[in-house]
């Protein structure tokens, strides 16, 4: 019956943050930096609120406990309205939530990063992490695919990555007036045509579901084990607390047990 009265804080209440910088990345995506200083893992996500519009999960694309960067694609009500904000504007954030990439457990490995479109955003956090802990990891190879040269995210950052890592970029389509010199075709083709073995390697994959399916098939053909592959799952999410049920994949809450899953955890039930 009666229990001791204590004040319990509502887990649904977000904190007010300010936009420190705003960078347009492509016709339908942009990156904001906010003064939300929390410790987190690469690959985790936050719940972003605009009061009246709603709340949505956004993956963290930076790795810092001083600030946070979010790359946002304009697909829904919230993201379209976030795009209209400018430096100095306020928004609300709670988090970080979920399990990120288990970088500490993967020390000593060579790293392959395969990203498609807006799926490159969470992977950027890994690259930031590796740059800050460079000695812990071996060779780093990046395969990044975008629809057109105009859709390439983090262009300034990518130039910097090229100095330290092996970076490959492809575009699906090349408009006539483009001066893009890299390969044209799906990112999956780049991976397929590359001579890679599975020795001391981990692979991080994030992108549209169909792209991830194809990448995993290719990796399996190259004899990668399921526990070498990490993917990031997308589901509808309302609470991010393991309650609301929308993000459940065969008993696993994407918001608690994911969004990053090791492939052997998800392969049997990814469509459930």
């Amino acid at each position: 019956m009666a229990k001791k009265k204590t004040t319990i804080e509502s887990k649904f209440l977000p904190k007010k943050v300010t936009i420190l910088s705003y960078q347009r990345e492509s016709a339908d995506s942009f990156t904001i930096k906010v003064d939300f200083a929390v410790k987190h893992e690469p690959g985790q996500f936050v719940q972003v609120t605009l009061p009246g519009i709603g709340e949505a999960p956004i993956s963290i694309c930076s790795y810092s406990d001083k600030f946070m960067e979010l790359n946002i694609r304009e697909v829904g009500d919230l993201t379209k309205n976030l795009a209209k904000l400018k430096v100095g504007d306020k928004l609300f954030i709670r988090g970080p939530y979920g399990k990120g990439y288990p970088m500490k457990d993967l020390k000593g490995n060579n790293v392959i990063i395969i990203g498609g479109g807006c799926g490159v955003a969470p992977l950027r956090g890994i690259i930031d992490y590796i740059e800050q802990n460079r000695a812990d990891y071996g060779d780093v190879k990046l395969f990044l695919g975008f629809r057109t040269p105009g859709d390439i995210l983090f262009q300034e950052k990518i130039k910097g990555w090229g100095k330290n890592f092996d970076v490959r970029i492809s575009v699906d389509k090349l408009p006539a007036d483009s001066c893009f010199a890299g390969p044209v075709g799906f990112v999956t083709n780049m991976v397929k045509n590359e001579q890679i073995d599975n020795k001391n390697k981990v692979v991080f994959v994030c992108g549209p579901p169909i792209m991830m399916d194809v990448v995993i098939k290719i990796l399996k053909e190259k004899w990668f084990n399921d526990d070498q592959i990490f993917i990031s799952a997308e589901r509808l999410m309302h609470c991010a607390l393991g309650l609301c049920g929308h993000c459940m994949i065969h008993g696993k809450y994407t918001c608690l047990d994911g969004p990053v899953f090791r492939w052997d955890e998800l392969k049997e039930c990814k469509n459930d």
């Binding site: 649904f12 009061p51 009246g52 519009i53 709603g54 709340e55 309302h238 609470c239 309650l243 609301c244 049920g245 929308h246």
Partner: peptide, 10 residues
Amino acid sequence: CYCFNIHDEA
């Protein structure tokens, strides 16, 4: 059953 939705109402 304990699942729920969340929405904003201006």
